[in-house]
Write a protein that binds this DNA or RNA. Structure first.
Lengths: 338, 338
DNA sequence: TTGTACGCGTTATCAA
DNA sequence: TTGATAACGCGTACAA
């Protein structure tokens, strides 16, 4: 790897001149010198050393993508199609803007913070932050931060968040079920915080509108720990048979629920209707194709990255909360009854 | 961010002493000093500046994961479950070993090389390298490299490769089809190079053993460009109906073929049998569950990272070629005929 | 046992 | 228009 110093020596100019040419500060350098240096730069395929640049400018061009993992889960974060699609969008936008993406996955916020500081990331995209995770990060890290899907009031007040109208999405889905004649509708998820809590509220809202009573038993809770998942799924499927429809908090859950039902000899949608959330390939590749709430994870990732980069460039975002609108995609897993 | 210099000043010791304590060179420092410094380090939550360290030691602790993308494809690399599972394994092993993963995705090898040099990655894991891609990288990049799934003779001679016995896997699958009474067996893929070529050879091998003649028409080629995929899939499904079984080069293809067939009113496995390759969630979540050739992408990623890190530590690998063994997983998409 | 001083590659300041 | 030089934070050879 050739360095600026070396180039300067070989061309018999100063490092300043070389650096100026590299950065297009052309009015400071004579045309002949520019040509000479540029030609040489191309010949030797000069590539800047980022570490040196970081040190000199205290700027790393790194955008940290932070995901808090749950090691006990039946699939890892990078196996979740929703997460991957989002990261794919982030990667695309970050690279196009000349930044570098560094993915930090850990279940330990302290470790994450230490990585971020070590690499001196210029900005952060935070995802899967629950409880006080977001707070812990922003306490230590004082550069721009964009959240995805936080529902912490504290964070929403002070930071940019790219969210989704989860409540509306879920409400629309359940309204649709009701319109199709369903009144015994269960809600399936593995938790009741953050995004899922909002979806749960949407579900409750739609029930209430229609004057359908809610009982705690309607909440079908999945235990997504490695050893529990299968059993939990079958238990949920068994319980689901007391309902005519199930709203699932993700396509992944929906597809797995349908499989569990199928394995128990229950047909979807003939015997029971199922609706998902996300609209990713799992639902699309399923047969019958999954009726679900569409959100574009890739686009949302791209927007988050663009917004962060805009902030890094010194622009103030117009508003702190961006809420994308999901929409229902009707396919083949909901049956009209009566 | 506090620096060593600052710490030294505050404790009234030298930077050398602080540095020595940080690196556990305890025999050079008096016990009291060690205690004093360690306590202070913890208090201020000292985090080293990686850029400075890189510069000083010419070592980055970065392992570059290089994927050559095909932007025209109907899904991006990070949407492919096989790729994600592999990256998930890589990430796990790289982080556990105290290294950092930087993912480089691009369709432009020159751009990839420039990124790698810029960040001074200590080692590389190369994936999806076709034609002379591998050669172009290794010409410029003179540090340890581990390939995954290369079939370039040139690279295999000189570099470590973590491969899979693709030929054997495909052969076993087709043998199984033949054992089930199938003789009209098609081969479905989107290309005929690298990994897929090997699988094709395994397919041919099994046919030959059984004295079944091969015709070029047996090769069902998918066009996986964005605008072509759907039409191509349906064309393939139509052609597939001339056969009693189809061997597909990936679970993703298999599932989509089954869907296309289903959409045409053809039942799997009643009317036609389908077998996949990979054994990922797409096949497992499908109903009927996909009969397929199992490989553990995550494990393979982990092994690749471990191997590379071992080389970085100065150990010579025992052998250049590691070939993992896939095995057939019989589920529900192959019917015994006659 | 501790401290000084230099080099890593780049950028920025300021003087020539 | 150009160049010398300091600074960024760290690790280390060598001196004390």
């Amino acid at each position: 790897m050739i360095t600026i110093k070396e180039i300067a020596a070989q061309l018999d100019v100063s490092t300043t001149t070389v650096s100026n040419v590299i950065h297009g500060k052309t009015k400071e350098v004579s045309p002949e010198t520019i040509k000479k240096v540029q030609k040489f730069l191309e010949e030797v395929e000069y590539v800047p050393n980022i570490s040196a640049r970081n040190l000199a400018q205290n700027e790393s061009k790194i955008i940290g993508v932070v995901l808090k993992s749950r090691p006990d889960r039946y699939i890892s974060l990078l196996q979740d199609p929703f997460v991957c699609e989002m990261i794919s969008g982030l990667e695309d936008a970050i690279r196009s803007a000349g930044y570098y993406m560094m993915v930090y996955i850990s279940d330990d916020i302290a470790e994450i913070i230490s990585h971020i500081s070590t690499w001196n990331a210029d900005g952060l995209i935070l995802f899967c932050m629950l409880d006080d995770d977001g707070q812990r990060v922003t306490e230590k890290y004082r550069k721009p931060v964009v959240f995805m899907d936080t529902y912490s009031e504290e964070m929403l007040k002070n930071y940019v968040n790219i969210g989704l109208d989860d409540r509306q999405g879920a409400c629309d889905a359940v309204r649709y079920l009701i319109k199709c004649g369903h009144r015994k509708i269960a809600f399936l998820s593995d938790n009741q915080v953050g995004v899922d809590l909002e979806r749960f509220r949407g579900y409750r809202m739609a029930l209430k509108e229609a004057g359908i009573e809610y009982s705690d038993r309607n909440f079908l809770q999945l235990h997504t720990e490695k050893e529990e998942m299968d059993r939990s799924l079958h238990r949920a499927a068994r319980k689901a048979r007391n309902y005519t429809a199930v709203f699932c908090c993700s396509d992944l859950f929906a597809v797995q629920l349908i499989n569990a039902l199928t394995d128990q000899g229950v047909r979807v949608p003939e015997d029971i209707s199922v609706i998902g959330f996300d609209d990713n390939m799992y639902g699309r590749f399923h047969r019958p194709a999954l009726t679900t709430v569409h959100q574009d994870a890739g686009y949302r990732g791209r927007r988050a990255a663009e917004l962060l980069i805009d902030i890094l460039k010194g622009n103030q975002p117009e508003k702190n909360r961006i809420v994308m609108k999901p929409h229902l995609v009707i396919r083949d897993t909901v049956k009209v009854i009566q």
